[in-house]
Write a protein that binds this DNA or RNA. Structure first.
Lengths: 206, 206
DNA sequence: GATCTTACCGACCGTCTGGTCGGGGGCAAG
DNA sequence: CTTGCCCCCGACCAGACGGTCGGTAAGATC
């Protein structure tokens, strides 16, 4: 039984969850610690007890929420997948289905990709954000590049394909689709873009 | 001869130029009117005489700086180009050369695409930004889609290509390349991405 | 020269920001 | 029962923010 009154891990987690939502909806610079504190149902003192400042909260979100999400969505499904192109298409499909089920008002269609949002806003402004997000993009790209490499080894991907370059392009394309998608604010934008991406993937098949 | 003392058009322009730089380097929410006023060498009074508020300044930047830039870089070069794929590749080349000549510290490599930055930050937050930027993306996509359509008419682009869908994908890819590029902060990221995009374009050639 | 409009100045305002700090109480060890 | 550490509270702070407003004077109009 967890103590109800004092529960530092739980408090910390509540802070991160509230901060994640706040930053997702208002951006990092536009996000307010006072709002976070209010939404989390705690106080300034608790927040600054667990984190030295605003940026540390965002760093923790990257390390503890976003990076694991990349691993869950991209790294794990692609490792040991013997048919990489099918596996990548499968990830897109799962993603599309998730977006289609969401409430458009406060989901992906309106607010875009949390990773790409943070990266777009904060990479030029703060080196701590930049290195963390660059690292995140690297593992994302790495997952795809490795899958393509294995596909070449098993003869399922054209040999002239350059895995790192195509992986970088694919990640960029996804980031861009999310970014332009929230400006268009239409589900069809995502659906059409995923179709185009799938055609691109098919062109790599041996 | 323009009056030196009173020159409203010149004042307005100085405000927009200073604001453009401020927002480009700090984002819209992070950008400060006090800084803009200081950099423009004018006062709060002058700024609020010419614009009703902060957002109006940014709207004017979109309408008077960014939209014309899209026309100059994408619409004009592609209209009446009889070989669309070559024309698009030419635009990429000019863009690449421009980025290679810049000072990386405060140019595209570090700060990304001004249009995409604004769109990413502000589309979910303010309907005035969203509609303006959506319109901007639309003309951008339209320029490419029209070029591809003409290419199909003249038999230079494969007939099964769907111009609007490919145009949307291309614009998304460019937005994403700029966004991930400033996180990587390496010129080579842009160069590799442009190569990948060119290969994608070549696949559409009839 | 008188009058009126437009352009601009800069001190000032209320609000909100990220961050501080002295205090208080839960809880485990001695 | 006492001590001491850790968790947390919330009033408070200096500073920055976007925005206002009374005033000044240039320049056009008559």
């Amino acid at each position: 039984m967890s103590t109800r009154v004092r529960d530092p891990k739980r408090t910390r987690r509540k802070i991160l969850e509230a901060a994640y939502k706040e930053f997702y909806h208002h951006g990092y610079q536009g996000g307010s610690l006072n709002n976070i504190v209010k939404q989390a149902g705690i106080t300034k003192g608790a927040l600054f007890h667990h984190f030295p400042g605003k940026s540390a909260v965002a760093y923790a979100i990257i390390d503890e929420f976003l990076l694991p999400a990349v691993r869950k969505w991209w790294v794990d499904p692609l490792t040991n997948a013997e048919a990489p192109i099918n596996a990548i298409k499968e990830v897109f499909k799962r993603f599309r289905q998730r977006v289609e089920k969401e409430n458009p008002e406060n989901g992906y269609v309106t607010n875009g990709c949390p990773i790409c949002n943070l990266a777009a806003e904060m990479s030029p402004l703060d080196e701590g954000f930049r290195t963390r997000l660059d690292n995140l993009y690297s593992t994302w790209r790495g997952a795809i590049a490795d899958a393509l490499k294995r596909g070449q080894a098993s003869g399922k991907v054209r040999p002239e394909v350059r895995p790192p370059e195509e992986a970088a392009f694919l990640v960029s394309a996804m980031a861009g689709i999310a970014a332009t998608g929230k400006t268009a604010r239409q589900l069809s934008h995502y659906q059409a873009s995923i179709r185009a991406t799938n055609r691109y993937l098919e062109a790599m098949r041996a």
